[in-house]
Design a binder for these strands. Structure first.
Length: 736
DNA sequence: GCTAACGTATTT
DNA sequence: AAATACGTTAGC
């Protein structure tokens, strides 16, 4: 049609005709595919397109030149049809264009001119994710409803009108709204409730599922409309949407749920109980309103009979009225909410949170849904279930070779787990969910030392203890306990998300990595991340790595090479520890890909350095790698200090020779080496280690061809310069 | 006027 | 449902 006769045609004529012919004819679109901006922007439906923030990690990167979208770009030799941003550069926090203005006063955002947080909020532009209206909260006259701020996208909320009219996100929001759960192909989409629910004609159900997409939570509705499902007395299994809620909660950085229940959780502790009573719940006054509004007709709150997205913003909002009460708060549950309901929810939530905070490795029951999906492939956090258990047990014995020495039960010979008996190799979960375009998932990293400085109390005063002192206390808590604290109040919720409390996130053997876990990880910006024996996919891993610029420790043992290969294309410059033990399919060829320099085909970008050049600790236990890989490692990892090659059947004396040869950096950098259960290593290797200047520990346990006599000889010969001892049989350790 | 790329329609 | 295409907006 006429629209297709735009300037683009020439472009295609000149260069892409052939390609297009090869693919498909240029479609003549019947209608304009993009929404045309209407002259009156205040009307609902039209939305201002967001643009890069230019500040986030992604925005500051340059194009990778490798991703799908880069390859499409003309500058990289592609046809330029897709017109998408480089995957690595997809903005984490897209902002409103700076031409955006308030629909009421027609002025831009003024938050920069203000100091006070509350003022800032009132004078910043907020875009409603439902009606798309952009306003200064201060310009709204609505008095008895509050906006619901979406923390995942800057300047985004559900405006008081929409919120109050009971509209919820998905229902009204355009399908392309670039907001976490609704992104095209978003990670969150995988969490869609079962369709059976959607077919349900009950409006209550519909509403509930809708709400799953929004940050807001109104348990009073759930309570009144769905008592049987969440009745505390029988909480057999979560409904799909409950599970979703639960997952939403996993890392939810925003306060919600029933405070009264939370209080109860700790009520046995007199100090906690007292404190919790004192904590100012910023929502208290709101609660009163909500109690009040429950009995009223939704619409009656708005001055206009046509509340919500259809209202013409200007006419409605310009009326002068009482001060707006648009608050930067989630609507909190009614105080009258049944404790049981919340408790039930809390338990469900906690189950998932446990999974996240599983430092204690508590057994988790598999979730019913996932059980159905891939019953045989999933690890269930120490769950029983036949051969899974065998795998797990095997893994526990094998998986962590640096700790191995502490755990070897004498009656179990490690040889039983040698790669020569491949049947004992744990089978990692496979078939991770496919996530396309999840690069667009919008996650904001947590602020450092989030305000306020002190806990606000009910009486208007602030609690005597400052945030930083609380932080010191929080540091003593497990992640599980932190999750509980996050449900105490908004302030604690913010504080507990401080990345200093989450430097190490351990999802080892977590049944499946869900999108919400991923966003939770990003929000916490861990320094150390353990994803071993999970079913993480390449795309998920790649997505994560690109958003964790400070990551220093990454554990991926037992994952598939398909997933681990994400490291080939993602850069992780600060990585110090890489654990890829027992990664199925990781052999020499894959190791070469892993260690080869970034194939950066951007003009002028010739980085020949290895992506893993800063790695100091490398765990390669159980891999079928040969000297080919060792040569590369020795060349590409000049800082390598600790190397785990246990259970590597191809490793022999020549390999040790390579690592310790003159001219190699590993010769001087190596401090610890684990060659346990390497059956081709012989006494001769000990001679090679004599030339290592920094070596402190050599683990040769269970190496059939290494004798105790040779170890003793080594100690005797070294004693002149560096005293060694035999800590265990064939485990040599420097005496410090 | 140019480039980048958002968001949605269309195709696979 | 995912991949692709492209009109159109945003920034300069």
């Amino acid at each position: 049609m006429a629209l297709s006769l735009s300037g683009d045609d020439e472009e295609y004529d000149s260069e892409s005709e052939q390609q297009r012919a090869a693919n498909r004819p240029k479609p003549k679109m019947g209608t304009s595919s993009a929404v045309k901006l209407p002259s009156n922007r205040s009307s609902s439906g039209a939305r201002r397109r967001r643009t890069r923030c230019r500040k986030c990690e992604a925005c500051l990167r340059s194009e990778c030149g490798e991703c799908h979208f880069c390859k499409d770009m003309k500058k990289f030799g592609g046809p330029g049809r897709m017109k998408q941003s480089c995957i690595m550069r997809q903005c984490i926090a897209p902002v409103l264009p700076h031409t955006a203005v308030c629909v009421v006063c027609k002025e831009a955002g003024k938050e920069d001119t203000l100091e006070d947080e509350e003022d800032k909020f009132n004078f910043m532009l907020m875009e409603c994710s439902i009606c798309n209206e952009i306003v200064h909260p201060n310009c709204l006259k609505v008095c008895d409803a509050s906006g619901v701020v979406n923390d995942e996208l800057p300047n985004c909320w559900e405006c008081p009108k929409c919120n109050h009219a009971g509209k919820s996100g998905k229902q009204k929001r355009g399908p392309g709204f670039k907001y976490a759960s609704n992104l095209p192909g978003s990670l969150l989409r995988e969490q869609k409730p079962v369709t059976k629910e959607e077919g349900d004609a009950s409006s209550a159900t519909k509403r509930r599922s809708d709400k799953e997409e929004t940050p807001r939570y109104r348990p009073e509705e759930s309570l009144s409309r769905q008592p049987p499902v969440l009745s505390p007395s029988n909480l057999p299994r979560p409904r799909p949407e409950d599970k979703l809620r639960k997952k939403r909660k996993l890392f939810d950085d925003d306060e919600e749920e029933d405070l009264s229940v939370r209080k109860k959780e700790r009520s046995d502790d007199p100090y906690f109980s007292k404190l919790l009573q004192q904590i100012k719940r910023e929502e208290d006054d709101e609660d009163v309103e909500e109690e009040d509004e429950d009995g009223r007709d939704d619409q009656s709150h708005c001055s206009s009979p046509q509340a919500g997205p259809s209202s013409e913003g200007g006419s409605e909002t310009q009326e002068k009225g009482p001060r707006p009460k648009a608050r930067r708060k989630r609507r909190l549950p009614n105080r009258e909410l049944s404790r049981e309901l919340s408790k039930a929810l809390t338990q469900e939530i906690q189950k998932t949170e446990d999974c996240m905070a599983n430092e204690n490795r508590q057994p988790l029951k598999p979730e019913p849904e996932t059980e159905n999906e891939e019953p045989k492939k999933l690890f269930c956090n120490g769950n029983e279930l036949g051969d899974q258990r065998a795998h797990l047990k095997t893994k526990e014995m094998n998986g962590n070779s640096w700790e191995l020495r502490h755990f070897y039960p004498s009656q179990i010979t490690p040889l039983g787990f040698n790669r020569s008996t491949p049947t004992t190799r744990p089978v990692p979960p496979r078939s991770p969910p496919k996530c396309v375009q999840m690069e667009r998932h919008v996650i904001r990293p947590p602020p450092i030392s989030p305000p306020p400085d002190r806990l606000p109390l009910k009486d208007g005063k602030a609690h005597i203890i400052q945030r930083e002192l609380w932080m010191k206390i929080f540091r003593y808590l497990t992640h599980q306990e932190l999750c509980v604290c996050m449900r105490v109040c908004k302030t604690w919720n913010r504080w507990c998300c401080d990345k200093r409390l989450w430097t190490k996130i351990d999802l080892n053997r977590c049944t499946s990595i869900t999108p919400l876990m991923l966003s939770g990880i990003i929000r916490r910006q861990p320094v150390s991340l353990d994803l071993s024996w999970t079913n993480i996919s390449k795309k998920q891993l790649s997505w994560l790595i690109n958003r964790l610029p400070g990551l220093r420790v990454l554990r991926l043992s037992g994952c598939s090479w398909a997933a681990v290969s994400a490291l080939c294309t993602s850069s992780c410059p600060l990585l110090r520890t890489l654990d890829v033990q027992w990664v199925e399919g990781l052999k020499d060829a894959q190791m070469r890909d892993l260690l080869s320099p970034t194939t950066d085909n951007r003009p002028g970008q010739l980085d020949n350095r290895c992506k893993l050049r800063n790695v100091e600790e490398l765990r390669l236990a159980g891999l079928d790698i040969t000297d080919t890989s060792l040569r590369l490692i020795s060349r590409q990892m000049p800082l390598l200090s600790r190397l785990d090659l246990s259970y590597c059947n191809h490793i022999n004396d020549q390999s040790v020779n390579l690592l310790t040869a003159a001219g190699t950096t590993t010769r001087d950098s190596l401090t610890e080496i684990n060659l346990s259960v390497c059956n081709r290593v012989t006494d001769h290797s000990l001679n090679f280690f004599k030339r290592c200047g920094s070596i402190c520990q050599i683990d040769l346990r269970f190496c059939k061809q290494v004798t105790k006599a040779a170890c003793e000889r080594f100690i005797a010969e070294m004693s002149v310069s560096v005293p060694f001892k035999l800590k265990e049989d064939k485990l040599l350790q420097k005496i410090s």
